[in-house]
Write a protein that binds this DNA or RNA. Structure first.
Length: 640
RNA sequence: GCUCCGGUAGCUCAGUGGUAGAGCGCUUCCUUGGUAAGGAAGAGGUCGAGGGUUCAAUUCCCUCCCGGAGCUCCA
């Protein structure tokens, strides 16, 4: 065996020997021609690298094919380069920014004088195909800073990035055909490996995300290995569009906005108000059972309160401006916590009283920049299902545990799987690092002791404390902001909160902020998309619609509607137009149950029940049996 | 807030330098129907607001308001 040969260890433990300077591709070829064709890149000693990179003398090797989880990101990153290649061919003057792979695709930022149009995207797509057909190899080159400056002498944005490299740090560039980019890599072997690339949209994006910097034009796209996967992805986008809560909100008369009311302020129509009220009723029942007490606090409060709380100092840019009454300044509250603290301080508290758990559906107002407003999901006025737990430091872990139970029970009711994130100290924060570290440690300990998996969101905490964020996963796999639990050692300090301990001394309580749904507006907006407007029966604005075959049967039908209503079921009568028409109306209105009554039913005391989305299938039931079934479904908050 | 795109009937949208159309919805009438649109007639619009250019502006220009795709931020 020659001393300069290469030994690679494969995942299955098998060792193969190759000539010096052999690449992962050579290894693949040695294993079989099929693998050599399929290989896209390799993981060598744990690092993802190009397929044609020479291997070290001794290495562990795993070949990456399109079946591996790393493959899509790799493909899309290469697709971004192919996009830039195409754009540069057609627009040589375009400055190149960054072009990474992102969750569902990739983007590339360009500095151009004129923004791109939809027609431009079509032209670029055609050129992308040409670049793919040309099958340019992706070639990696290691360069020094001097050489890199020379290569990118006309690319101001790349030069700026270049200066951030430390002296001696490895700088790599990638070339595919005519295009050269400063890039860490790795890439697929050649542009021909890209097959199914689709450009999706173009929009402005600040250079490096900094609004004081130049605005670039970002092109978003996606890429897949299989045409069917691309088609499925585009279908998912269509599906998301169909579920858009703004569209369904209008169709189902759930909520409205009105320029006369103002941007980012929601008008809840009766149907939407029912959904919201059901959630609030459910949650009240839930939290009262879990030892909470309901409180109410004003919407407008003296500005001095927010000086004490620190909101004026830390949150002012998100607050509505002050209003002046008799020389005193008032503010719309941006959070409910100061009010709840004042209620705590309305009396002397003993350790025997703790934990105290105050809950309020508290409406808050926050200034949000106009560009971020979005339907019900991002607004300027919203109602939080807010609660604050005041307890001793010793009680924190058990309170967190109780909250984890509460969150789990609620999210299960709505059919949301979820993930947990632990968010740590942000740059702008109150309180010492020791206090923060201690608080973060407590949250971490509880999660770990329960064996719950979680991610860490560095710097994602609120200014007054670390938090646990729950992310919901909806019916089409998207993530939503869910419950949050925030630990706060700071506000009790600022307000000088106290309780009398067992030792008859004054002690400072710890405070937990928590929301379950977060904002009623956002949560209901999210639910609309989650259920695609077809709410489960307990949440449906209209639960049963009774359709007499003809007006001849309106009277018994109307009597049955009254009977259902008297049992607490939201039922209505629709007796105009043809039956076909009314069935269609009810289906489009997403009413969960339609009850048809004609001669047969009237004679037999039955109702022909058709389920939403169930087509012509019907079930003839005794009227009382049907009412009982619906009531039971409502009572158990079934997800049907 | 910034870049770009848009705002015409309640909704979805077409259209034009000479003050406007469709479908759905709404109203009325006819139809009395067995599981996703029965038929007819009618009402409904200062073409987002203000200013400018023009003999004439919904149409062209400017400013503002509102919405959308993003950037940044976030419950």
């Amino acid at each position: 065996m020659a001393s300069d040969s290469v030994h690679v260890t494969l995942p299955d433990g098998k060792v193969i020997d190759l000539p010096a300077a052999a690449s992962a591709y050579d290894a693949a070829a040695a294993i079989g021609p099929g693998l050599a064709r399929a290989a896209l890149a390799a993981v060598v000693d744990g690092e993802l690298v190009d397929l044609h990179r020479p291997l070290p003398q001794s290495a562990s090797l795993r070949l990456i094919t399109e079946r591996d989880p790393e493959a899509l990101g790799l493909l899309r990153h290469s697709a971004a380069h192919v996009l830039a290649t195409a754009v540069r061919r057609l627009r040589p003057e375009a400055q190149i920014g960054f072009g990474p792979a992102i969750e569902d695709g990739f983007y590339y930022d360009f500095g151009v004088d004129e923004p791109f149009t939809p027609e431009d995207l079509e032209t670029f797509e055609a050129e992308i195909q040409a670049v793919i057909d040309a099958d340019f190899p992706f070639e990696r080159e290691v360069v020094d800073k001097v050489r890199a400056r020379e290569l990118f002498r006309d690319d101001a944005l790349k030069l700026e990035r270049l200066e951030e490299f430390a002296d001696g740090e490895t700088i790599t560039v990638y070339r595919d055909g005519p295009f050269l980019d400063l890039c860490r890599g790795p890439h697929v072997p050649s542009t021909g490996r890209l097959q199914h690339v689709k450009l999706l949209s173009a929009a402005g994006a600040y250079w490096r995300g900094d609004e004081t910097r130049q605005m670039l034009q970002r092109i978003y796209g996606t890429a897949f290995f299989k045409d069917a996967d691309l088609a499925a992805h585009l279908e998912r986008l269509e599906e998301a569009k169909k579920r858009d809560h703004r569209v369904l909100g209008r169709q189902l008369d759930l909520f409205a906005v009105d320029a006369r009311v103002g941007s980012g302020l929601i008008l809840w129509q009766p149907a939407g108000a029912i959904v919201r009220n059901e959630i609030e009723d459910y949650e009240k029942e839930l939290i009262l059972r879990h030892g909470y007490e309901l409180v109410y606090t004003p919407h407008v409060m003296s500005e001095r309160l927010f000086e004490i709380s620190g909101h004026l100092e830390n949150f002012q840019e998100n607050m509505f401006g002050a209003m002046e009454i008799e020389g005193a300044r008032y503010r719309a509250k941006p959070m409910n916590c100061p009010g709840h603290i004042c209620i705590y301080q309305a009396g002397q508290r003993s350790y025997r009283d703790l934990p105290i758990r105050y809950a309020e559906f508290g409406t808050v107002y926050r200034y949000e920049r106009s560009g971020v407003l979005h339907g019900m999901l991002r607004v300027r006025g919203f109602t939080q299902d807010d609660a604050h737990v005041f307890c001793t430091e010793d009680q924190v872990p058990s309170e967190i545990e109780a909250l984890l139970d509460l969150v789990d029970e609620m999210l299960t009711t709505f059919g949301y799987p979820y993930t947990i994130e632990l968010a740590t100290r942000p740059e702008k924060a109150m309180g010492s690092e020791e206090v923060w570290d201690h608080a973060i440690g407590q949250l971490r300990t509880v999660l770990e002791s329960r064996g719950l998996p979680f991610d860490v969101d560095e710097g994602g905490g609120a200014f007054y404390g670390p938090k646990l964020d729950f992310k919901l996963i909806d019916a089409i796999g998207r993530k939503w902001q869910g419950p949050t639990v925030q630990l706060d050692f700071n506000l009790p300090e600022r307000f000088g909160m106290e309780y009398i301990g067992e030792d008859n001394e004054r002690h400072r309580p710890v405070m937990l902020h928590r929301v379950l749904v977060g904002s009623m507006e956002r949560f209901v907006g999210g639910l609309v998309e989650h259920y695609a407007g077809a709410f489960p029966v307990w949440l449906s604005p209209e639960q049963v619609r009774i359709l007499p075959i003809s007006e001849q049967f309106s009277e018994p039908a109307s009597a049955y509607v009254a009977e259902l209503r008297s049992q607490g079921i939201r039922a209505s009568l629709h007796d105009r137009e043809s039956l076909n028409y009314r069935i269609r109306e009810a289906e489009m209105r997403k009413v969960p149950y339609m009850g048809v009554m004609g001669e047969r039913e009237v004679e037999n005391g039955t109702v022909a029940v058709r389920r939403r989305g169930g087509g012509r299938k019907q079930e003839v039931l005794d009227r009382r049996v049907f009412a009982d079934q619906v009531r039971e479904e409502i009572r158990t908050r079934g997800s049907g």
